[in-house]
Measured scan of single mutants.
Amino acid sequence: MLDDRARMEAAKKEKVEQILAEFQLQEEDLKKVMRRMQKEMDRGLRLETHEEASVKMLPTYVRSTPEGSEVGDFLSLDLGGTNFRVMLVKVGEGEEGQWSVKTKHQMYSIPEDAMTGTAEMLFDYISECISDFLDKHQMKHKKLPLGFTFSFPVRHEDIDKGILLNWTKGFKASGAEGNNVVGLLRDAIKRRGDFEMDVVAMVNDTVATMISCYYEDHQCEVGMIVGTGCNACYMEEMQNVELVEGDEGRMCVNTEWGAFGDSGELDEFLLEYDRLVDESSANPGQQLYEKLIGGKYMGELVRLVLLRLVDENLLFHGEASEQLRTRGAFETRFVSQVESDTGDRKQIYNILSTLGLRPSTTDCDIVRRACESVSTRAAHMCSAGLAGVINRMRESRSEDVMRITVGVDGSVYKLHPSFKERFHASVRRLTPSCEITFIESEEGSGRGAALVSAVACKKACMLGQ
């Protein structure tokens, strides 16, 4: 009897593995994704193909990295998701002549009506938060230079001027797309009239992360975010950046690689679950690469896999709870928690219980395998993109072996128990001629924006502006 049951459990697990095998990517698959990513990057950089390229390769006008001589107080704003952060950054000489960066910050959550109302409502709310922060720190009387981390696709015309191309991540505030974001912020500050600010720089969160990590390690020339969304930036040779005049030196390019796949480059790798996630998203047909990796989508992918296993009578005796059938019910943090389970399955059992399920031991094991399959594919897909960037940098610099540091931020990278190990191992397999160091950014977005502002202020002083 026991043997029969054991055989049935083994057969069930084997069927589960057959279904989950769809998520496995072979090294040849990853090399294919990497080569296609490089081709799209090239198209994004070139003037004649930029418009139709899915990977936009947006110039950021960040050319210099901090040298350690900029000092002063800077205000930093960070808008990239449902939370908005205001930070005071003091850049100065530390002990023994070292450079020191001290920060104080406060988080504000953005109400739904500000995210989806008008641009005026959104930026009025942001300036209200700045006003509140300055009151708390008794700094209303000071006109501070301000660095703005704005983590949406922007076409820069200068370091302090950028046109919002399109909202992502659930934002829909009308009247912002096609307009200068810094102008919208300046107008809102003017409307309030109770404080003055000098907006000197606007950067993407990947750029802010790279600059913040450069402060720790001067070989950091790539910034990457794996959180709600997924994106990367890197220092490109100016001669390859056709959208900006000049051939000397390097400029940081914001790849906006989340949109890779929007022209069909990933079609052969998309599964039924991916198509369902895409169809029910706020932007169907867009940001397809990001939807395979980002935390906004990972939990939902797992939920759809679990429903398939229920329908195949391989999980929960073929019956799903009402909660499990509800879109968004299986949160991405559950994926991390399930994979963090120590082996007694308590954590998995508790999560499934909150979803109205009474799982068996085998159910718990199957749910864990589903989570591992989805998150491992995410790590491997992400590795193909980064390997594409790094191999490109090595080739354009004609280096036999390139040493490089990548600064990384984002909740999936930082909080998932195995993502970074799987990701690092896969990147290294795909970049055999590179020695890569990964560092995690601390308060990256805010500190990085302030350091970019410090560079901009120093330049302005040198130019006598």
Rank of each mutant, 00 (worst) to 15 (best):
A6C: 12
A6G: 10
V16E: 15
I19T: 15
L25I: 15
M37S: 02
L58N: 10
S64Y: 12
T65V: 09
E67K: 13
E70K: 04
E70R: 06
V71L: 11
D73T: 02
D73Y: 02
S76P: 01
T82Q: 00
R85K: 06
V86L: 09
V89H: 01
K90N: 03
V91A: 09
G92T: 07
G94A: 10
E96V: 08
H105Q: 03
Y108D: 06
I110D: 04
E112C: 08
D113N: 09
S131K: 02
T149K: 11
P153N: 11
V154E: 09
E157L: 15
G162A: 08
L165S: 14
K169V: 13
F171M: 12
E177R: 08
N179F: 13
G183L: 06
G183Q: 06
D187H: 07
D187A: 03
K190R: 12
R192I: 06
E196L: 05
D198P: 02
V200F: 05
V200W: 01
N204Q: 13
T209E: 05
D217H: 10
V222N: 01
I225D: 01
T228M: 05
N240K: 02
V241K: 00
V241R: 00
E245F: 03
V253C: 02
N254A: 02
T255W: 01
T255H: 04
E256M: 09
W257T: 02
G261K: 01
G264D: 13
E265R: 08
Q286E: 13
L301V: 09
V302Y: 07
L306V: 03
F316K: 02
L324R: 00
R327V: 12
V338H: 00
K346V: 13
K346G: 09
L355S: 04
R358L: 05
D363H: 00
A370S: 04
A370T: 08
S375L: 09
T376P: 00
C382V: 08
S383F: 00
L386T: 14
A387W: 01
I390A: 10
I404A: 05
D409A: 12
S418D: 11
F419N: 05
F419G: 03
E421L: 13
V427M: 01
R428M: 12
S445L: 12
L451G: 14
A454F: 13
A456G: 11
A456Y: 04
Q465F: 15
